[in-house]
Design a protein around this nucleic acid. Structure first.
Ligand SMILES: [Zn+2]
Ligand SMILES: [Zn+2]
Length: 823
DNA sequence: AGCACGCCGACT
DNA sequence: GTCGGCGTGCTC
C-alpha cells in the first residue's frame, strides 16, 4: 500500500507547498533520477495521505535528511520553474499578512491547469484533429480511453496506465491541446459582438438605386416588408440589429438570408463598444491637454522620491491617457507594467482602448477566461509580456521585471477579496508586490480612499491632481432634495420628489438621458403582514427575503434561497401582505407609470446575469434605445456619459445607514462616482440627490464636491474612534451550525485572546446578519496600534487561539475565519 | 481539504 | 448483531 518508489536514495530532499489549507510545508525525498530536474519553483507530483496525489510546488531543495520518515516525490512536472523567487516571496507575505496558509495562497495564485490533483477530470479536446494512432504509447492509451469514456479523472488515468508517475505526461498533453481539464469547456473569450444588418452597395451609398432593390423583390412580399421595416429603422439609428428587424418586420432568418443571396442586405458582426466614444477620444488623442502634461511631469518628479503616487483626477479628466503615456515610457525601457482594475470596471471598452494603443503588447487577465487562455497569459508574463491588464488575481502572475503598477479606481472596495482565503486587498498587496520588484505604483481615482489620502498627507505617498475635465467639460451641478420637507408638502409620488420627476421630464424633452441610482436590487427588501408585522425570512439566514416582482418570488440575497409568496400570513392568517422599502425593480416599475413615454432600462445583478445582457444594456444606452437607466452601483462604471443630462440618487440615506465605520466614505465615493456620470459635451450636467437626512455632513460635502472637507471630518472621527488609518483592524468570525456551540466557543476563544489583548479586543458579538447559510456567526474585532511588533505578535496569538479552540473537546468543527483589514 | 479511525443510535 | 452518522486527528 504505502511502499515507496523503487529508486535509490539521493540524499536530496524538497519541502513543498500543497495547494490547500494545510498549515505547513511538507518534506519529500527526491529519487536519484529526478535530482537533476528538481529546483525551487517547479511542481512535483507527490502522494499526500493514503490515496491522493497533488501537484505541489517546491519551496526549498535540501541536502540533509529532515530526520523523519519521508515519502519520495513521484516525478518532477516542469522543466523550468513556473514562478520566480519574487512570487514566492510575495506568496509568503500574503500568507503572513492575511493570516492564511501558503497552500491557500498557492490555490488562489495558480490557474487551474497548473493545479493537478487526483480528482481533476480531463476530456479529449474537441479541437484535436490529429490522428491518435500517431501518439506515443501512453498518450495513445489515454486518448483512446477518452474516446470511449469521454471523461476521466487523473486517478482513473493512473489506473489505466498502471503507473504512478503521470503528471508530466498530463502536462505535456495539456500543452499540446490534446486534452482539456473538464471545467474548460467554457468557450474562448472573445470581444462581444452583435449581429447587425446593413444594405449592400450600391444601395447603401446611393439611395436612389433602392427602387431597383424593390423591383428585384417585387414578388416576395415578406422580403419587401422586411426591406421597408429596415428603412424605417434606419431613419432613427445608425446600426440595425438583426433581432430588431426580425421583430418589426415579423420575419425570420430565412427571409433575411434570401435577401442576402440577392445582394440587398448583409448581416455582419459588430463589436459592441463603438469606436470613437468620448473616452476613446481622450485616450487616443495625439495631443495631451495642459493638465495631462502637467500631471505627467509631476508624476516623474515625485517618483524620484516616492514609490507610490496618488493621482486624484475627476471623472473625465483623462487619467487613462496619463497611464498610457507612463506605460509607453516603461515599455520603451523594456519594463513590465501591471494595470489593475476592479473586476466590474474591466469592460470591453477599456480593453479595446488599450489594445488599440498597444496592440498585442497587452494581455488581459480576468475571470471570464478559460483555463488555457489563463496559462497562455501566465507563460507570456513569465517571458516578459509588456503590459497586463487585470483584476486582483493578476497580481500573482509570474512577472520578472515589473517596474510599474497602476491601480485604477483605487478606492473601490471590491479590491478586497471577501470570502475564501487569502482575504487580500488588491491595492495593498499590489503596493507590496511593487516594493519587491522595486517598481513604482500609481493609484488613480476621482474619490481617494481615506487611507491613501492620509498617506499623501503624511508624506508617504506623492499626490498629483487633475481637477478639470478634459476638453473643458464642466462638472455637474448638484441639488439636494429634502424628502422630509417634500413629504410634508405632499409633493412626493412614491419614491420620487416632484423636483426629480420634473427634472427628468425636462431632460428627456431635451433629448438627453437620465441615470437613476438605487443601490438595492429586487422590488422591495421586505415583504410582511400589515396586521401583525410578521416578515418573510430566509430559512437559512437571518435576513428578510427580497420580493422580486419579475419572477414573482421571494429571494435571499445571502444564500440564494427562493420561495413562493405566501397567500396569507402564517402567523395571524391575515391576507394583507405588503412590501416595505424599494429596489431598482420597483423604481423601474413606477417610472413606467410616471413617464409612460420614456425608454426605461434596468441594470443590476438580475438583469445582467445572462451572457450578453450587460454589454447589451450598455450598448442600448449608448445608442439611445434606453433613455432612462435605473441601476445599482453597476451604473457607476463603464457607461459613456456623453449624453447624460441628469443623474438621480433616489435615497442617499440607505447608503449612509450602512452598519460599519466606512459608511460615510462609501456613500461619499458612490455618490460622487455616480454624479460623475452626468455631463454632456457642451452643457453642464445635473445631479439630484434625495435624502431624509439632509443634515448629514456627507450630503453637504457631496453637494460641494468637496473631498477636502469630507476627508478632514472623516479623518478626525477615525482618530477619535480608533479606526484606520490610525489603527489596524482584524476581524475574526466563528461559525457553527449549532448556536450553543458557537456561543460557548466564542466565550473560550474570547477569554484566550482577552488575556493578552485586553481592551484591544472587541466582542464577542453577533454580527449584523447573525446566521448565513445555516451557520451561526460570532464576530470579534481587534484594534491595534500601528506597531509592527504588536501586529506580528497578535497574529501569532490568533494562530495560538485557533489551535487552542480546535483541540478543545467539542469545538473542533467550529470554523474560524480571520480577516485582516476587513472593511 | 480529504480520509481513516472510532465511538454511539437505529435498523436488517 | 451490523450499518452509518459525525467528531477527531493526521497527512512528509
Ligand atoms: Zn400577520
Ligand atoms: Zn439565505
Amino acid at each position: 500500500m504505502s511502499e515507496l518508489h523503487p529508486t535509490s536514495d539521493s540524499n536530496t530532499y524538497v519541502t513543498v507547498i500543497l495547494p490547500m489549507a494545510v498549515p505547513k510545508p511538507y518534506t519529500y525525498a527526491v529519487p536519484e533520477e529526478w535530482v537533476s530536474k528538481v529546483q525551487v519553483g517547479v511542481r512535483v507530483e507527490v502522494q499526500f495521505g493514503p490515496k491522493r496525489q497533488y501537484a505541489a510546488l517546491v519551496l526549498e531543495v535540501l541536502n540533509t535528511s529532515p530526520g523523519h520518515k519521508t515519502k519520495s516525490i513521484l516525478s518532477v512536472i516542469d522543466d523550468t520553474p513556473i514562478i520566480w523567487a519574487e512570487q514566492l516571496r510575495f506568496w509568503q507575505w500574503v500568507g503572513q499578512y492575511y493570516c492564511c496558509t501558503l497552500g491557500e495562497v498557492m490555490h488562489a495564485a495558480l490557474p487551474a491547469n497548473l493545479k493537478l490533483a487526483s480528482e481533476t477530470s480531463i476530456t479529449l479536446s474537441p479541437l484535436f484533429e490529429g490522428d491518435i494512432m500517431e501518439l506515443e504509447d501512453r498518450a495513445y492509451l489515454i486518448a483512446e480511453a477518452l474516446t470511449i469514456q469521454h471523461e476521466l479523472t487523473l486517478e482513473q488515468v493512473r489506473d489505466i496506465l498502471g503507473i504512478k508517475t503521470i503528471y508530466p505526461l498530463i502536462r505535456d498533453l495539456l500543452d499540446k491541446r490534446i486534452i482539456y481539464l473538464k471545467e474548460d469547456l467554457k468557450e474562448k473569450f472573445k470581444a462581444k459582438t452583435l449581429a447587425c444588418v446593413r444594405l449592400r452597395e450600391p444601395y447603401a451609398s446611393q439611395p436612389e438605386t433602392l427602387q431597383d432593390a424593390f423591383d428585384k423583390l417585387s414578388r416576395a412580399t415578406r422580403q419587401v416588408e422586411a426591406l421597408m421595416a429596415f428603412l424605417q429603422l434606419a431613419r432613427g439609428q445608425d446600426y440595425i440589429r438583426r433581432e430588431e428587424l426580425y421583430k418589426l418586420a415579423k420575419v425570420d432568418s430565412s427571409v433575411i438570408q434570401a435577401m442576402e443571396k440577392k445582394g440587398i442586405l448583409e448581416v455582419y458582426e459588430r463589436e459592441v463598444s463603438r469606436i470613437g466614444g468620448y473616452e476613446d477620444e481622450i485616450v487616443e488623442a495625439d495631443v495631451l491637454s495642459a493638465q495631462q502634461e502637467r500631471a505627467i511631469a509631476e508624476i516623474h518628479t515625485q517618483f524620484e522620491e516616492k514609490n507610490v503616487i496618488l493621482l486624484q483626477g475627476v471623472t473625465g479628466s483623462g487619467k487613462t491617457r496619463v497611464y498610457v503615456e507612463l506605460i509607453r515610457e516603461a515599455m520603451r525601457r523594456g519594463e513590465q507594467v501591471l494595470y489593475l482594475l476592479p473586476e466590474i470596471a474591466l469592460t470591453t471598452q477599456i480593453i479595446e482602448r488599450l489594445q488599440r494603443v498597444f496592440g498585442d503588447q497587452v494581455d488581459v487577465y480576468h475571470s471570464r477566461l478559460n483555463n488555457n487562455e489563463r496559462v497562455e497569459i501566465w507563460n507570456r508574463a513569465k517571458e516578459g509580456k509588456a503590459l497586463v491588464l487585470g483584476a486582483r488575481s493578476a497580481l500573482f502572475l509570474p512577472f520578472r521585471n515589473l517596474k510599474l503598477v497602476i491601480i485604477d479606481e483605487e478606492h473601490d472596495p471590491s479590491f478586497k477579496q471577501q470570502d475564501p482565503n487569502p482575504r487580500y486587498h488588491g491595492r495593498d498587496a499590489g503596493i507590496y508586490l511593487a516594493q519587491l520588484f522595486g517598481a513604482k505604483v500609481l493609484l488613480g481615482t476621482a474619490t481617494p480612499s481615506v487611507e491613501s489620502f492620509y498617506n499623501t498627507q503624511v508624506g508617504k505617498y506623492g499626490l498629483v491632481r487633475m481637477p478639470e475635465r478634459f476638453g473643458g467639460l464642466e462638472l455637474p451641478e448638484v441639488e439636494i432634495v429634502d424628502l422630509k420637507k417634500a413629504l410634508r408638502a405632499g409633493s412626493m409620488q412614491s419614491h420620487f420628489s416632484v423636483t426629480l420627476l420634473n427634472e427628468m421630464k425636462a431632460t428627456l424633452e431635451r433629448g438627453e438621458q437620465v441615470i437613476l441610482f438605487q443601490n438595492r436590487r429586487g422590488y422591495a427588501p421586505v415583504y410582511k403582514c400589515s396586521t401583525c408585522n410578521w416578515t418573510c425570512e430566509c430559512i437559512h439566514c437571518d435576513v428578510s427575503l427580497t420580493y422580486h416582482k419579475g419572477q414573482n418570488n421571494l429571494k435571499c440575497h445571502y444564500c440564494g434561497y427562493q420561495t413562493q409568496l405566501p397567500k396569507a400570513c402564517p402567523a395571524c392568517g391575515g391576507k394583507q401582505l405588503i412590501v416595505q422599502g424599494f429596489g431598482t425593480e420597483k423604481v423601474e416599475d413606477e417610472l413606467k407609470i410616471f413617464l409612460p413615454d420614456a425608454k426605461i432600462g434596468r441594470m443590476d445583478l438580475d438583469t445582467v446575469r445572462s451572457k450578453n445582457a450587460h454589454t447589451k444594456i450598455i450598448n442600448d444606452f449608448e445608442e439611445g434605445r434606453i433613455n432612462v437607466l435605473v441601476g445599482t452601483q453597476m451604473v457607476t462604471k463603464g457607461l459613456d456619459f456623453e449624453k447624460v443630462g441628469l443623474v438621480g440618487v433616489l435615497s442617499a440615506d440607505q447608503l449612509l445607514q450602512f452598519p460599519d465605520f466606512r459608511a460615510g466614505e462609501r456613500a461619499f465615493q458612490l455618490m460622487l462616482q455616480v454624479a460623475g456620470r452626468a455631463g454632456r459635451k457642451h452643457k453642464r450636467g445635473k445631479v439630484i440627490i434625495q435624502s431624509h437626512n439632509v443634515a448629514n455632513p456627507v450630503i453637504k460635502e457631496v453637494l460641494d464636491g468637496d473631498f477636502k472637507a469630507f476627508y478632514s471630518r472623516e479623518i478626525m472621527e477615525r482618530q477619535e474612534f480608533f479606526y484606520p488609518p490610525f489603527y489596524r483592524l482584524i476581524r475574526i468570525t466563528l461559525k457553527h451550525k449549532k448556536p450553543e456551540v458557537v456561543n460557548a466557543a466564542a466565550q473560550k476563544y474570547g477569554n484566550f485572546l482577552r488575556a493578552k489583548l485586553g481592551d484591544r479586543l472587541r466582542g464577542p458579538a453577533v454580527p449584523y446578519v447573525g446566521r448565513v447559510r445555516s451557520y451561526f456567526l460570532i464576530d470579534f474585532l481587534i484594534k491595534l496600534e500601528r506597531n509592527p511588533q504588536l501586529i506580528a505578535n497578535t497574529k501569532d496569538l490568533i494562530a495560538a487561539a485557533d489551535h487552542f479552540l480546535l483541540q478543545e473537546e467539542g469545538y473542533s468543527s467550529v470554523k474560524i475565519a480571520v480577516d485582516v483589514d476587513p472593511f
